[in-house]
Amino acid sequence: MEFTALFLAIAIVMLVAWRGSRSLALPLFAAVLIACVATYLHHATDTLKLSF
């Protein structure tokens, strides 16, 4: 679900960058980038199933 939301958010930022205002596109980009980093950290802190 989080990836659907991220792709949707990026598509919206692309449309704002293409047809809307620059001053709106920049903070939207920052918000999506932070969401991406948060998603990465969520997955990066998963326990690794390694067997030694």
């Binding site: 990836f3 598509a11 930022v13 960058a17 293409w18 620059r22 596109a25 999506v32 991406c36």
Partner: peptide
Amino acid sequence: PLCLLQRVMFALLAIGPILNIRF
């Protein structure tokens, strides 16, 4: 999930060029 996140980051890469073309 990490493969999807890499696709997400490729898509996010495109916003800079779109802004360059537009503005």
